[in-house]
């Protein structure tokens, strides 16, 4: 048998596309332990889901032993990174019609994790930024939420969360490599829009001028928001990159 066919039969069996008897006969295996490998893989997926979605599992009272095999047969892992097994879990919950706030909680938990998995470093992506210039964080993720998940997770998970239509901005802390969530205010969204429209690095003073030309915000408030955006790594400067990456 060709190696490719051997690999394929294993794969079909592990993904539930062929049954045990078919796999045993095609692979010429006599003993009954082929099923054991399915158990091992279930276990890995269970472990990954437990690690990545602890709050979702708690809030939705999910039974991992039941849900994990269903999940992995529908959504396989497409990455060698061991933690990527949970990547499509939010989509799985959506397809299984879980309440929207559960879907959003799972997405929140995944984003928290996913931003840290990014291969790229911000400083490599924008290595040519000049001293006075600012730019939009190239790894920034913006996600629309219907429920106030950031507030809910600090309260009672068994109560339905409050609705709050908003965009959550996700970045990572350079030093700790953990996640920074920021609820986008109107001014923050305007700042992001300026960068998206201009599609270039912008000096701080020019950014203020561009903003003030079509916004009623006071100069003082604008300065504060720019500093806040820098603190949350939504926008970056050479100083913030050097300071953070060298620490």
């Amino acid at each position: 048998m060709k190696l490719k066919d051997y690999n394929k039969i294993w794969s079909q069996f592990l993904l539930g596309k062929i049954n045990l008897q078919e796999a045993q006969s095609s692979l010429k295996i006599k003993n009954p332990h082929l099923e054991l490998y399915k158990e091992f893989i279930n276990h890995h997926f269970e472990f990954a889901l437990a690690k990545n979605f602890p709050l979702t599992i708690k809030a939705a009272k999910l039974k991992l032993q039941e849900i994990s095999p269903l999940y992995y047969q529908e959504y396989q892992a497409y990455d060698w990174e061991l933690n990527s097994m949970g990547k499509q879990f939010p989509q799985f919950l959506t397809n299984k019609n879980y309440p929207l706030y559960i879907q959003e909680l799972s997405l929140y938990e995944w984003l928290k994790f996913d931003i840290c998995l990014s291969c790229e470093n911000e400083e490599e992506v924008i290595s040519d930024i000049a001293q006075e210039e600012l730019c939009l964080n190239p790894l920034l993720i913006g996600q629309q939420f219907t429920y106030d998940i950031t507030d809910w997770i600090n309260k009672d998970l068994f109560q339905t969360p409050l609705e709050l239509h908003h965009i959550l901005l996700v970045t990572r802390d350079f030093h700790l490599k953990n996640c920074l969530f920021t609820k986008a205010s109107q001014i923050l969204l305007e700042i992001i829009n300026v960068f998206l429209e201009q599609n270039r690095f912008i000096e701080k003073n020019e950014l203020k001028e561009l903003m003030l030309s079509h916004s009623s915000t006071s100069k003082e408030k604008l300065s504060k928001e720019i500093e806040f955006a820098l603190k949350q790594n939504i926008i970056l400067s050479k100083d913030s990159l050097c300071l953070n990456h060298s620490s």
Binding site: M1, L3, N7, K8, W10, S11, Y37, F40, A77, L82
Partner: peptide
């Protein structure tokens, strides 16, 4: 792994 699907387990070789 097989055709980009990763099983994250050590499966016996042919």
């Amino acid at each position: 792994s097989h055709e980009k699907v990763h099983f994250h387990d050590l499966l016996p070789v042919l």
